[in-house]
Design a protein around this nucleic acid. Structure first.
Length: 940
DNA sequence: GAGTTTGAAACT
DNA sequence: CAGTTTCAAACTC
């Protein structure tokens, strides 16, 4: 492990391709995919790094694909991607509009290009021909859509094979530029501009081609989306260019790719240029200036297109997303896609790839989109309840890596990313609406970006933070992470490309002074939220490495020594990861799982949105001296309360003591048996009022408290606990829809032991949470692009989606589930969940009964920690019911029957509930609901 | 910035 | 599966 394979290390572009191919096999296995999906790898650090281990996270891929689909689908009610894609396009712009935009873009681009050409000359970097840039651009935009990608590829091929290569080179160059640019911002900018110019040309081509392609899409929805995006983007670009923002436009275009990769979020748009110009840090600064110009006018359209593109890019970079995507698209293809996506990302860029690569890349992009959408969902919900609903659907990974969590703090980024994701998820249909949303989100994002660093500290972004928190783990953090990681990863990719092209690139990274990295990391950690490793002996190939554990490549900020966690060593990384996963399929799964419901509850009660109390650490901590009051404690570090799974001693976790958690569980457990329908109803009510309300979800953002961490967290947590016994359970409920396993299991789960359930639930919860959000969003807005379930289009569809979700191993959990009971859930018809509308309800249910159930159901995987809980039961947090642990036991055995019935009942009920009733009154309603819940429970 | 503490990850 | 070692982050000075 320690010594990564040296041979691999010097991976050249070719090697990268090889690695890709190699990786593919691994990912191919559905199981691995599931597992990988479970793995949080994706984004934790993603923010900068964006580069995830494409190959590595097979699981992510699974998710990603679904997301992608969902993203695209969003608009189209139909589950199928293709339809959606088309619909999206239409929605966004008619083909004619696209053509127009294309023509315009072309004109604008041409102008810009000329200018850029000049700039290019000035810029040393840029090597790649415009075509190259274009290719990249195309690739990104086309991204998800294989068809589009193919189309583009074909176009490129037809136009000129050279162009394709050049495009590839261009990409590499662009990356290189960025990479090099890091040194000089201005230089980067120039490069970016140049690239943008190239990209513009490419866009022109693309646009022209796109016009045709748009219809081609049918092959793949994603393709449609891309085509749509491209046109829009182009149009956007055009407008910008017309406005005299050529540079920005160009940058935006280029950025779109890069940024998307890194930041996805609206930040990307502005940032896009900025990003290129700089790393994340610089980005913020430049962002303000640059962003300002484009943001208003451009943001909407650009965002949408960029988001999509960005999504796709991320997907390429991040395998994580892929899993989800696969879920949406098709589990079978997902794995391949995942693999391919990875390879594509690297290979396509590096090699130039064949069409197949392109397709793969497209897929990967789709996956990424899915991931992004998930993230967006996570993020969105918080800020935008309605919108969030759209995005929510996909919360691919609920779980968060601690790193991600840490990173999550910089919600702004995450928010932006999420926004983009949301947009993506929304799909074409959403695009316009999304544009609106995006506008808001963009605004938020901007504010966030502006405040980005501030965000952490500033509550304003609290919304963002809240999102981050909510997503927490997963999406939010991921999004955040992605934002930063994206930058990092983008740089990494660039580096890769550079390295591939220029052997030095690797050295460059390595050479980077640790100090700088540290500074960044420290900064990022603190403000930016980007956490970087400092590994010295593990070569960043072990879980000790936060980056590696998060599934992202080490980047500039890292001060690691002898790092093999780089794109260059992709093969090594993948292998190592596989090894680790072979030992522990959940090794890369998000450590923190969020219960969907919790947010609402917590936020409501406290009024302060702090950490998602419901969120829990998958494995739990084992603190003995820190009393869970320091960052030594992973739970505390993640701003989550300790749970049954924790083996900590003298737990004083501000976010929630283990004891409290146990109590809640007990309650839940009892509820499981005792709770019965009345309890469920109460929960439902609660959920309906709060959870159900999409708004409520939105508010979740509350969260934000991630940063707050503990202060309010404890209360919120407690409250949530009361209402929602276990976060996991809640999550599980939500999960049902998406990951269904749990949800479905929830029904069955009762039977299952509490521990297992908990684990699974927790794990799924994160996912569920996302899903829940998605559902909510979906209900209101659009179908979650990603997951079919998300799509929601209609409530009925929701049910299907849920089921579908259950099918797909959404996240890592799915994998976990596969291993354990989780699968059951999936298998189990989530039907109850089906009513997405009920998602909230579900959440609510989950929170109460479901959560309990979930906990019970929680797969062993998650359970790790959980054993103790059962015992805890004695006291109820609320003091209401402190039924003895029987519940667990009951659940396990005799109670199982009743519980099941109860759970099932709940689930069914959930659907019936108004999905997203306005809930906004988080506090009041929540309290009432809680009280009602409690009462109900007591009654029970 | 160096050294210590801490707990997770890895190993046996 | 439990115990030990290794590791890197968090923390303290």
């Amino acid at each position: 492990m320690d010594s990564p394979e040296p041979s691999k290390a010097p991976i050249s572009s070719s090697s990268a391709a090889a690695s890709i191919s190699a990786s593919s096999p691994v990912q191919e296995s559905p199981f691995s995919n599931y597992i990988s999906s479970l793995s949080p790898i994706k984004h934790d650090k993603v923010p900068h790094v964006a580069q995830g281990f494409l190959g590595l996270n097979s699981p992510p891929l699974v998710f990603t694909s679904p997301h992608i689909n969902t993203l695209r689908r969003p608009q189209s009610s139909s589950v199928e991607v293709s339809q959606n894609g088309e619909g999206d396009k239409k929605n966004i712009d008619g083909p004619g509009s696209l053509e127009r935009s294309v023509s315009e873009l072309q004109q604008g681009l041409i102008t810009d290009i000329k200018k850029e050409d000049d700039t290019k000359d000035s810029v040393s970097v840029q090597p790649s021909s415009s075509s190259g840039c274009v290719d990249e651009y195309l690739a990104d935009p086309v991204e998800a859509d294989c068809a589009n990608s193919e189309y583009f590829i074909n176009l490129n091929c037809k136009e000129s094979k050279n162009a394709f290569q050049s495009s590839v080179n261009g990409l590499l160059e662009t990356k290189n530029l960025k990479f090099a640019g890091k040194n000089d911002v201005g230089r980067e900018i120039d490069a970016a501009q140049l690239l943008s110019g190239q990209s513009e040309e490419g866009l022109e081509r693309k646009l022209t081609s796109h016009v045709k392609p748009v219809k081609i899409e049918d092959e793949q929805h994603a393709g449609q989306v891309k085509s749509d995006e491209c046109p829009e983007f182009g149009s956007d670009m055009f407008d910008l260019s017309s406005q005299g923002k050529e540079c920005k436009n160009l940058d935006a275009q280029k950025v779109v790719e890069d940024h998307e990769d890194r930041c996805d979020g609206f930040l990307q748009l502005l940032p896009g240029s900025l990003q290129r110009v700089q790393e994340y840090e610089d980005f913020a600064e430049n962002f303000e200036g640059v962003a300002e110009v484009t943001v208003d006018s451009m943001t909407n359209d650009l965002e949408a297109s960029e988001h999509q593109r960005g999504m796709s890019r991320r997907c390429l970079q991040f395998g994580d997303a892929q899993p989800e995507a696969t879920a949406n698209c098709s589990s079978s293809s997902l794995a391949n896609d995942m693999i391919t996506s990875r390879s594509v990302a690297t290979t396509s860029e590096t090699e130039g790839l064949g069409l197949s690569h392109v397709d793969l890349s497209v897929i990967s992009r789709k996956r990424q989109l899915v991931n992004l959408s998930q993230l967006a969902i996570n993020m969105i919900p918080q800020h935008y309840g309605e919108k969030s609903s759209l995005t929510v659907s996909k919360p691919s990974g609920i779980g968060l890596h601690l790193n991600s969590i840490v990173n999550a703090i910089p919600m702004g980024r995450g928010g932006t990313a999420s926004m983009k994701l949301a947009v993506d998820s929304m799909g074409i249909q959403g695009i316009k609406s999304a544009s609106v949303m995006s506008c808001q989100s963009m605004e938020n994002m901007q504010s966030c970006s502006d405040a980005f660093e501030k965000v952490l500290a500033a509550p304003q972004d609290g919304t963002l933070e809240a999102k981050a928190c909510v997503i927490p783990g997963s999406a939010a953090s991921e999004s955040l992470c992605t934002m930063e990681s994206i930058d990092c990863q983008t740089t990494l990719h660039r580096k890769r490309e550079l390295s591939s092209e220029h052997g030095d690139s690797n050295e460059m990274f390595n050479q980077q002074s640790p100090k700088k990295k540290r500074k960044k990391s420290s900064n990022s950690t603190d403000g930016e939220g980007c956490k970087r490793c400092n590994c010295k002996k593990t070569k960043c190939l072990k879980l000790y490495c936060d980056c590696f554990a998060a599934g992202i490549y080490c980047a500039d900020p890292c001060s690691c020594q002898g790092c093999f966690n780089r794109p260059e060593y992709e093969d090594t990384v993948l292998e190592t990861r596989q090894q680790i996963e072979s030992r522990n399929p959940l090794a890369f799964a998000p450590k923190i799982v969020q219960p969907v419901t919790e947010f609402p509850v917590t936020s409501r009660e406290d009024g302060n949105w702090k950490t998602p109390s419901s969120a829990r650490h998958k494995r739990g901590c084992n603190c003995k001296r820190s009393m869970c009051l320091k960052k030594y404690c992973e739970c505390y570090q993640a701003n989550v309360g300790c749970s049954i799974g924790c083996r900590c001693e003298g737990c004083k976790n501000v976010f929630g003591k283990k004891e409290d958690y146990c109590v809640t569980e007990e309650i839940v457990n009892r509820g499981g048996g005792e709770i019965s329908e009345s309890t469920v109803a109460a929960k439902k009510d609660f959920l309906n009022s709060d959870l159900c309300d999409p708004h409520y979800l939105t508010p979740l953002t509350p969260s934000f408290q991630c940063s707050d961490h503990g202060k309010n967290a404890p209360k919120s947590r407690l409250l949530s606990r009361r209402c929602l016994p276990s976060p996991e359970s809640d999550l599980t409920v939500l999960a049902k829809s998406p990951r269904s396993p749990r949800t479905s299991d929830s029904n069955d789960m009762l039977l299952e032991t509490s521990k297992e359930n908990l684990d699974v639930g927790s794990y799924c919860e994160g996912i569920n949470y996302n899903n829940a959000d998605v559902l909510g969003d979906g209900c209101h807005h659009t179908p979650l692009p990603n997951h079919p379930s998300i799509i929601l289009g209609s409530t009925s569809s929701k049910a299907r989606e849920l089921t579908s979700l259950s099918r797909f191993p959404l996240g890592p959990r799915s994998g976990c589930l596969s291993s354990g009971g989780s699968l059951r859930w999936r298998s189990s018809p989530i039907t109850p969940m089906s009513s997405l509308d009920g998602t909230k309800n579900l959440q609510g249910l989950d929170s109460d009964g479901l959560s309990d159930i979930l906990e019970d159901d929680t797969p062993e995987i998650l359970k790790d920690t959980s054993t103790p809980n059962k015992s805890v039961k004695t006291s109820s947090p609320n003091g209401k019911r402190v039924s003895p642990p029987h519940n667990l036991l009951q659940l396990g055995s005799s109670s199982s029957g009743p519980l099941r019935s109860g759970r099932k009942f709940i689930l069914k009920a959930v659907p019936s509930f108004p999905p997203l009733t306005p809930c906004i009154d988080l506090k009041g309603s929540s309290n009432q609901n809680r009280s009602s819940c409690q009462e109900n429970s007591s009654n029970d």
